[in-house]
Design a binder for these strands. Sequence first.
DNA 1: CCGTATTACGCTAGCCGTAATGATG
DNA 2: CATCATTACGGCTAGCGTAATACGG
Lengths: 283, 283
Amino acid sequence: MLEIYLLEQLEAFARCGTLSAAAEELHLSQPALTRSMKKLEEVIGVPLFERQKNKLTLNENGRLAAEYARRVLDQDREIVERVRAFDRASRTISIGSCAPVPLDQIVPVLSRLYVGMTISQELGNDDALLERLLAGEHKLVILHEQPEDESLHWKPCSSEKLFLVVPSTHPLAKHEKGIRLKELEGQSILLFSQIGFWYELCKEKIPHPRFILQDDFHTFGELAYASALPVFTTDYWVKRDEYASDGRVLLPILDPEASVNYYLACAGKDRRRFKALFEQIEA
Amino acid sequence: MLEIYLLEQLEAFARCGTLSAAAEELHLSQPALTRSMKKLEEVIGVPLFERQKNKLTLNENGRLAAEYARRVLDQDREIVERVRAFDRASRTISIGSCAPVPLDQIVPVLSRLYVGMTISQELGNDDALLERLLAGEHKLVILHEQPEDESLHWKPCSSEKLFLVVPSTHPLAKHEKGIRLKELEGQSILLFSQIGFWYELCKEKIPHPRFILQDDFHTFGELAYASALPVFTTDYWVKRDEYASDGRVLLPILDPEASVNYYLACAGKDRRRFKALFEQIEA
DNA sequence: CCGTATTACGCTAGCCGTAATGATG
DNA sequence: CATCATTACGGCTAGCGTAATACGG
């Protein structure tokens, strides 16, 4: 069998054009390459080179061999990469979610139940999440619509309701019984950017919105506190006493889409693996 | 890089199930395999085996690695095979023909012009020949129809006319001016089997033919001489005094299809290579 | 106990580098 | 004479085998 190191050397020679150049690239001596190329010809049993006393070039056979060598080298490298990736994946639970809140609720449970596993989390919209779940790229996903795919296992896991926080002096503050998104037309609203599907919802339902986006959670908190801008929040944060400062009013959002139920889903074949998790969570 | 010998050993272990069995198959000692498997794990950097004190089995990673190993091994073997085949092909001129006679005329010319090349010859029908020419499996083909493919280079090279030889006592002997194939209905005719398209022609044009086929050229000659059966021949053989024995009559076959022109063809890109050949042959 | 894996130890084949030679522009 | 390929020679690593150890059905 042709050992990889021979193919590596052939490939380097094919690319570099001379033995010296290839030798330098491979951190080897010219004689070593001369020998290897001879050995290749000997093993394959056909001439691979055009030999002029002072110049070595690949002939047709050699060019073909070099092309095949490249393929084998690529595949050989792939073994290491793929097996490492597979091993990593087997030690990782990748969970995708349409929103950050249910993720914050479930990840601690996951960590506790599957000790030693790496948990990787990612946000995405329902369609993309389902696709990645079916592709095996996510082991778990949290959606805000019930999955219809029969091959999936799922369970409702929590819910969330949208609110708007405004200073009590703000014109909108009078809608204490609640407000509809379309009534926020043209309002400048402070928005944390990592909120998953909520962003799409607001963008869709509020005509001509002027969102002021903030990437950093801490900065967002400070802005929300310091500025007089309306800020979106949800019952989850309200219960945890965020944004409940004096002089602010909490306006429920009345649109039905502003109250969502979340659903945790996994592939049917992983049902057993995540049995403990599904038992822990409550709708 | 993972050397091939390591992959070979992994593959053998995956197939054999135990190190001892694999060692025997590879003509190696168990310790050698133990070391190699350890080395594989070390290089890839992930566990590939389930280790019970007395039993070694592949884990998921290992099974994946073994599968990839198989592919690399296959491709590695293919390098040698393919390059050898390519080299052989480059030293071989494969010529296909619809009939043996023009082949016998051209092959000596080929041998003389392309010294050192192996000439491989094969019979086939026009369609198959063209296909193989375009696939590069034949470098030259001899057809009995003008090729229509624009990418081909061709030239008429010879012609051949069909005759029937019958004993002068035979009822058919009176047709000395010639006979049509359909008039041979129901006749038992002695036929040499390696005559290319002629066989198809006769089978098609003679109603209810009763061919007596003979594979061996020598035996065929003897039968033709000894028996009282009608025998097909052509002007080529007649000129060479075959079948021209006493007490036999030569009947020309009158069907237009029984007089053919042959055409030598090669791929357009090989036009130069075979320039000398095309100059030598005459229509 | 026999079959299996692993460890320990010494050997050697094979791959490499250095140095020298030859060829070429 | 600078550059490239090749040959010659010696060193050393890495893969191997033998022998010994350990574990299990």
